[in-house]
Amino acid sequence: MSMNFKAGDELTPFVIESVSPDAMRDWSVFLADPNPIHLDVEVVKAKGLGDKRINQGPINVAYMMNMLMAAVPGSRIESMNSRFLDNVYEGDHLTATGTVTSVDGNRLTCEIKLDVAGRGTVNSGVATLII
C-alpha cells in the first residue's frame, strides 16, 4: 500500500478466521490470569455468560494492532485507546479495520474497530501511528 495516506483512506483489514481456544489457553499463561471463563465452557455456562469460551480482552486489542502494523508497514504505534463493547467467543470470525482521520506530518491518526461476523462491533477506538 502507498504510504501517501490521506483522511478517509481505508486501511487494509486484518482477518481472524476463527478465534482459537488454544490461544486463550496460551494467553492465560502470558497474562498470568487463570480466569476459567477463558478456559472452561462449563464455567461460562454456570455464570450465564453463554456456551463458548470468552476471548481475553487484550487479544482483541492485539488483533487491531496487527491490522495497523500490517496496513502501514514500518510504522509504530504512538498511542491507542479502545473500548470493549462486547465479548468475543471461540469460533468467532473477526475483522479488524481502520479509517484514516488525519495525517499531520509523520503522524497518522485513524479510527479502528473490531467486528464479529453477524454480530457487529465488539471493540472500537482511535490510534495514532508514527509513519
Binding site: P58, I77, S79, M80, N81, S82, F84
Partner: peptide, 12 residues
Amino acid sequence: DGPMMGSSGVKF
C-alpha cells in the same frame, strides 16, 4: 463477581 474491561489506552 466478574469485573469487565471497559477500555484500555496506551501512549508509547
